[in-house]
Design a protein around this nucleic acid. Structure first.
Length: 640
RNA sequence: GCCGACGUGGCUCAACGGUAGAGCAGAUCUUUCGUAAAGAUCAGGUUAUGGGUUCGAUUCCCAUCGUCGGCUCCA
């Protein structure tokens, strides 16, 4: 979502960014005032600026309709709030900063429990300043930290006292900065976008608050551009394109999160698999195959069950033994490693499988192809010695980079996810020494390979740190595409060993990796990435032959057959339709090449080539076109 | 799972207490046409499902299922 490049001539980019930050932050305060005026009993939580706008969280209590359910905002409320916000803006109330002690703050917010809780955190934060460092993730881009509610907690280094900003009747716990007065928030350049539920402090055990999202810009033009961009984004939403291009579908009787791949989707998957198999063969991987179910014992051994049971389909019991459908492939691969004694000469051992896994994702988490319950993973496990680790790990990073080059993916962030002390023994394997060691190995490898990354604490897998490649769906949702994980724990649980060159048993490290993600997420992502305009090699239908009238059908069929025999995915459109209509059909299906054939072409053994982008080349010898198409396909060219 | 909104033929949408209508897609017939839509006819819906209110429900209420926007979680 980061490519909304608005050019503000005259201002530096940084100035412009700062200004937007202040506008959005101030708009959040103004909205909170408006809400408090309309709902005097509302409890206010937090309201930070975020990418493209701002939000504020409220607790409206349970009064009203007497049904005991929390009171919620309605779309009509949004209009009222927006209207009141404009009035506050017109009032040009100055934003005044002041500092106060914790006790003064407690008194000021005595009726605001959420604020009181924040104040306690701040007060304690000061104590902490001398002890252990706070929870701040480092090095992540500002947009990231903007979306993190924790960033609202004032900077511990500057807050020996608590600060507030006040405008008109509203005073909020805040470290700023803000515009000078409310009039500097452009009244025609903001819009309240949606109402959503959100947990207090992002914790699902806490109360569910009402969040209002707004978008705010420097001027009306930018606002309109943003709204326009959202409209455009909807058009390339993979769910919409997936239906239009007949890639996949869902069926109520099959179940939520269980996609059915239509023939066109089948082609995409076959091509991706072909790519993966070729690449992995060259990189020294061995292909294996494993069952979809196993006894409970396997997942108990791997340690997944206690961490993962919630996300697994419930077990089925047969002859007194519980079986689970696999949510991941690793335990099976570990068993393949263990199938015979291993020597250092076998290492590294790279076991690859496009494994089909099932995860019982919570119903509200499902999202088109990006988050599903059945998935085929571009999985592999690399068993290696510590000395081989760096080369193997970076070999995988190299694979990503090669794939991203092929697909022209450049908008991604590599994210190193590390453990957090507080989760040891719960979320994470309880061995801090190995955590620190492996995390450092990954950092070292990334640095040596000169690969930029950001680091985030408390996001690791339970068995070790990982590098995820973060991407964004076209509507702005963030996902991990590829993943590359270090596992220092599970091989030991499986008693995996190899004999080293000194004749001693040694436990290997395991790298779990999925550079092409799952078919589901990859196809979902690629649909949006290409807006459905797949490169020729990936296109479900590569060539559509369009005879002008039925006297040309035979020539069209001959041509089509000739291409099909060469493994080009070609179809002839023999419908009783006008050529224009046939071209339109092919355009809508985003077929890269259309070959129009009529009397002239038939006589000369040529084709009239129309590419998807509208360019045209008449009188092209058929053989020449075929050679060109074959070359594009064979080299997986991105060129049309 | 949580908060909210929504759910009409394959798709996009209309009607909104009086018992469903259009365009596209589909089928048939006519048309044989030079770079994004030829014409006609036909077929297709127990208005997600199950209850309730009512003389009468697609329209109002409840539940279930599903989808969407978020939260939480994640490949």
């Amino acid at each position: 979502m980061s490519n909304s490049n608005n050019s503000n001539g005259g201002h530096s980019e940084q100035e412009s960014k700062d200004r937007l930050y202040k506008i959005r932050h101030s708009a959040a305060h103004i909205m909170a005032q408006a809400v408090l005026e309309l709902y005097p009993d509302a409890k206010i939580a937090i309201g930070p600026p975020i990418e493209n706008g701002f939000y504020y969280d409220f607790d409206l209590g349970k009064e009203d309709n007497g049904n005991g359910k929390p009171r919620t905002f309605t779309p009509e409320d949004m209009e009222k709030i927006e209207k009141r916000m404009r009035q506050i803006i017109a009032g040009k109330h100055p934003f005044d900063y002041r500092q106060l002690s914790a006790d003064e703050a407690r008194d000021l917010y005595k009726d605001q429990p959420y604020k009181l809780e924040l104040i306690e955190g701040l007060a304690q934060g000061q104590v902490n300043e001398y002890g252990e460092e706070g929870d701040q993730g480092s090095g992540i881009g500002d947009q990231e930290s903007l979306t993190d509610p924790r960033s609202l907690i004032p900077d511990p280094h500057s807050s020996t006292v608590i600060s507030t900003y006040k405008h008109d009747t509203f005073e909020d716990l805040c470290r700023g900065p803000h515009v000078e007065h409310t009039g500097q928030v452009p009244a025609d350049a903001f819009k309240l976008m949606s109402i959503a539920g959100a947990y207090w402090r992002g914790d699902e055990h806490n109360a569910m608050l009402q969040r209002i999202y707004g978008t705010a810009w420097q001027n009306k033009k930018d606002l309109n551009a943003h709204l326009q961009m959202l409209e455009e984004a909807k058009k390339r939403d993979h769910r919409k394109l997936g239906r239009e291009l007949e890639i996949f579908t869902f069926d109520d009787e099959v179940g939520p999160g269980l996609p059915l791949w239509l023939p066109n989707g089948g082609v995409l998957i076959e091509e991706l698999e072909k790519l993966a198999k070729e690449t992995e063969r060259k990189a020294g991987y061995d292909r294996v195959r494993t069952p979809h179910v196993s006894k409970e014992a396997l997942f108990l051994r791997s340690g997944h069950l206690p961490y993962y049971a919630e996300s697994m389909f419930p077990p089925m019991e047969l002859e007194g033994v519980k079986y689970y459908i696999k949510p991941m492939n690793c335990p099976f691969h570990h068993k393949i490693f263990a199938a015979k004694p291993r020597s250092y000469r076998d290492m590294p051992l790279r076991l690859a499988e496009y494994g089909t896994c099932y995860r019982y994702e919570k119903s509200g988490e499902l999202f088109g192809l990006m988050r599903v319950r059945s998935m085929q993973m571009n999985d592999a496990h690399i068993y290696c010695s510590e000395g081989q680790f760096e080369q193997e790990f970076m070999g995988v990073v190299g694979l990503y980079q090669e794939y991203f080059r092929i697909f022209g993916i450049d908008k991604y962030v590599m994210r190193l996810s590390t453990h957090h002390k507080s989760g040891l023994g719960k979320k994470y394997v309880d061995n801090e020494r190995l955590w620190l060691k492996t995390e450092d190995m990954v950092r070292q490898a990334m640095r040596n390979g000169d690969v930029p990354y950001v680091e985030v604490a408390d996001e690791a897998a339970f068995y070790g740190p990982k590098i995820d490649v973060q991407i964004w769906s076209v509507i702005g949702r963030e996902f991990s595409l590829a993943t590359n994980q270090v596992d220092f724990a599970v091989p030991e649980r499986f008693d995996l060993t190899f004999t080293n060159n000194e004749g001693h048993g040694e436990t290997p490290l395991c790298i779990h990796r999925a550079p092409l993600s799952t078919h589901e997420r990859m196809v979902g992502f690629l649909l949006e990435h290409y807006a459905g305009n797949f490169p020729v090699w990936l296109s479900p239908e590569q060539v559509r032959v369009i005879p002008i009238s039925d006297t040309h059908n035979e020539y069209a069929m001959q041509l089509t057959k000739r291409m099909q025999d060469l493994d080009i995915r070609a179809e002839a459109d023999l419908e009783s339709e006008r050529m224009n209509a046939k071209i339109r059909q092919a355009q809508l299906m985003k077929v890269p090449y259309m070959l129009v054939v009529g009397d002239r072409e038939m006589a000369e053994e040529t084709v009239s080539l129309r590419k998807r982008d509208g360019t045209q080349q008449n009188g092209l010898p058929a053989g020449e076109f075929i050679a060109m198409a074959q070359e594009r396909i064979a080299t997986r060219s991105s060129e049309l």
